[in-house]
Computed example of a mutant assay.
Amino acid sequence: MGKSKFRTTELSNPAFEMDGLRFITIKTPHLKGRGDICVFVPKGEDHQSLPVVTLLHGVYGSAWVWPFLGNAHGITQRLIDQKKIPPMVLVMPSDGLWGDGSGYMNHDGKNFEKWIAEDVPDAVFENIPEVSEESIHFIAGLSMGGFGALKIGAKYGEKYQAISAHSLITEVAQMTLFVEEPLDAYKQAERAREDVLTAIIENRENLPRLRFDCGLDDELLDYNRTLHQELKKNQVPHTYEEFVGSHKWEYWQEHLEDTLIFFKDVLKKSC
């Protein structure tokens, strides 16, 4: 491998890793500093060019919440052991740690979007031997992370094979339900960076496979239903599902399985 794209990189010592979890910290101009990435590598020898699933967290969280609040690594390993999905690498970055949540948007001179779409895949490629240039990439997220996954996945459709989201924020104004920062702090020059529907419509010619779901007791349910209806009206192919549950980790733990099996099905069709 050639020269690193990052000035500094810290990688966890394999001697101290547990349950297949590794940590990477890189310094990037897009964050004007350092960013953290938690990576899960499944059990097994001689894994090569494994599919990569980027999981984006919601407000208040960081790189650790998907494994240590959501048991994402445990769920993934169980599905692999049950042969419901092939071995996959989970990549769980921080959102850049701005305020209560960056929204994975660009502000304060930092490019949180490119941090996810460019830096994170590059850091994983450089530091995880089980990942190669041939690895297929997927992106998913919950709440604010679902907002980021759909916008970034649509804009960077050439990078991702499919997109999935749980309980997603669909438009930037909904951030005010969760954060203390003023809405003006999130304003973008382009509407596609503030609104999932606009991002999808503007990039529909290169849109990856798409699914999302929401709980029946979730405060974001009506917004998710509206997005579903607007996508139908605009004839954008997608899958939308509703399940019992609310805006809580118990819901996301249960339905991460739907995301991973969806990605498995996309993999099968692409082979």
Rank of each mutant, 00 (worst) to 15 (best):
V124M: 08
F40N: 01
M175P: 01
A173G: 08
I261W: 02
L221A: 09
N203H: 14
A15I: 08
P129F: 09
A165Q: 04
D19A: 14
R78T: 12
G148W: 01
V124T: 09
A15K: 14
N127L: 10
D265C: 07
A72V: 09
F40R: 02
A63E: 13
I85N: 06
Y223D: 13
F262C: 03
P14S: 11
G33S: 08
I26W: 05
Q253R: 15
E241P: 00
S102E: 02
L90T: 07
Q188P: 02
E202H: 04
G58R: 03
G157V: 00
I136L: 09
N106P: 06
S94M: 06
D95R: 05
A189Y: 10
T259Y: 05
H166L: 15
F147W: 03
G74T: 08
A15C: 08
R34N: 13
R204D: 06
L216C: 10
R193L: 11
K232P: 01
I201K: 11
L220S: 04
D218R: 05
A140G: 00
A117S: 15
L150Q: 15
G109M: 04
F68Q: 14
F16K: 11
V196E: 04
E190T: 10
G109D: 07
I116D: 00
V179E: 02
T8A: 09
L260W: 06
D46C: 08
H137K: 15
E134S: 12
K187I: 07
W249A: 13
E118V: 03
F262R: 00
K110T: 05
T176G: 03
K264D: 13
G148E: 01
V52M: 14
F125E: 14
F40P: 00
L231C: 05
A192P: 00
H107M: 08
E181I: 01
Y60A: 12
Q235W: 05
G157T: 00
L21T: 07
K155R: 13
K269E: 15
S102K: 02
L97I: 11
I169G: 04
Q77I: 06
D222R: 10
E219D: 12
P129N: 07
G74Y: 07
C271T: 11
V244E: 13
H238M: 06
Y251P: 08
G70S: 04
R191Y: 05
F16L: 12
L197R: 07
T76E: 08
S167D: 00
D95A: 15
K32D: 09
H107Y: 10
F243Q: 08
S143M: 06
L56R: 06
N234L: 11
V52P: 02
K151T: 01
K43Q: 13
V39D: 10
K264Q: 15
L183F: 03
R211S: 13
D100G: 14
H255F: 05
A117E: 06
G157P: 03
L260N: 04
L183I: 12
E10W: 10
K114E: 13
G146F: 00
E194H: 09
D119L: 01
S4M: 11
G109R: 04
V124I: 13
T25Y: 08
F125P: 02
I85M: 10
N127V: 05
Q253L: 11
S62E: 13
N13E: 11
L231Y: 02
T28A: 01
W64H: 11
K43W: 09
E171T: 14
D258Q: 12
L90V: 08
H57L: 03
